[in-house]
């Protein structure tokens, strides 16, 4: 299993091959086609599923799909209501999208590590990295979008002057303006960076361990890969949940006027 899909280099080559994305383009204008493809497919899967449930949504006895969708909606809604006390049409749907999309992208981790790259190599794809959330671009794509939303709402709710005041005058008052600004900038920038890196780190490490297990002799693999997969179900859900909750918290902080 360990030495069929790549050109050589033994264990290191196998690992590197698995972690190399299928890309097109040069320099900054490189596109990770596998990341884009799988995230879009999973996003469409999410939308199709939930749109179907929403179209048929009735106040009467719900079907299984509607039940499932409603369960998630209520779960997300209660999280939003706990943390966010304002009124916003954006935050709850945003949170639902984040939770389900990240969960689906993380779930790609549980597909056997060699399965999709093998299929890819059959149809002529040299590299295939199937878990979008092991790509920093995917995690930063979401966290930077969230960061823009934080900035947008901060300025919208507090006004330009209010936001500037908060950036410059807290926590130490007007005599420490440069220091305050530095602290605030670190605080603001740490949010998207920590969001993206936390998710990326967890998923990347998890995937790496699956790859390492795949390098072991076949009779040991199930013993390790089964418990790790079970544990991983918890991790992928937890990471999706953490990303969602922190997004809600950050956005509710942006709505608070000091």
């Amino acid at each position: 299993m360990a030495s069929e899909a790549h050109g050589g280099g033994g264990a290191t080559g196998y690992i590197v091959h698995h972690l190399t994305p299928l890309s097109a383009g040069e320099g900054f204008w490189t596109f990770h086609l596998d990341t884009l493809f799988f995230s879009v497919v999973l996003g469409i899967l999410f939308l199709a599923l939930f749109r179907k449930a929403a179209e048929k949504a009735t106040a009467d006895v719900p079907g299984p799909l509607q039940n499932f969708a409603e369960m998630l909606v209520e779960f997300v809604d209660s999280q939003v209501k706990d943390a966010f006390h304002g009124k916003s049409v954006l935050i709850a749907p945003l949170s639902l999208t984040i939770f389900v999309w990240i969960w689906l992208m993380n779930f790609m981790d549980l597909i056997p590590v060699d399965l999709l790259p093998l299929i890819g190599s059959v149809v002529g794809l040299e590299y295939l990295r199937v878990v979008p959330s092991t790509d920093l671009n995917a995690t930063f794509g979401m966290s930077i979008s969230v960061f823009f939303l934080i900035l947008f709402y901060s300025i919208k709710v507090k006004g330009g002057i209010g936001f500037a005041k908060e950036m410059l005058l807290s926590p130490f008052g007007k005599w420490m303006i440069p220091f305050n600004l530095l602290l605030k900038l670190v605080e603001e920038i740490a949010r998207p960076v920590s969001l993206a890196l936390r998710l990326f780190g967890n998923m990347y490490a998890g995937e790496l361990i699956f790859i390492l297990i795949a390098l072991l002799p076949w009779f040991i693999q199930p013993l390790l890969s089964f418990p790790w997969a079970v544990f991983h179900i918890l991790i992928i859900t937890l990471q999706a949940f953490i990303f969602m909750v922190l997004t809600i918290v950050y956005l509710s902080l942006a709505h608070e006027d000091h």
């Binding site: 490189t30 990770h32 995230s39 945003l94 999309w101 930063f140 794509g141 979008s145």
Partner: peptide, 17 residues
């Protein structure tokens, strides 16, 4: 490395939301 995939992901994310 961070590259243009980031922009694609942001657009995808925005559309999904």
């Amino acid at each position: 490395n961070i590259n243009a995939t980031l922009i694609g992901q942001m657009i995808t994310f925005t559309l999904l939301v």
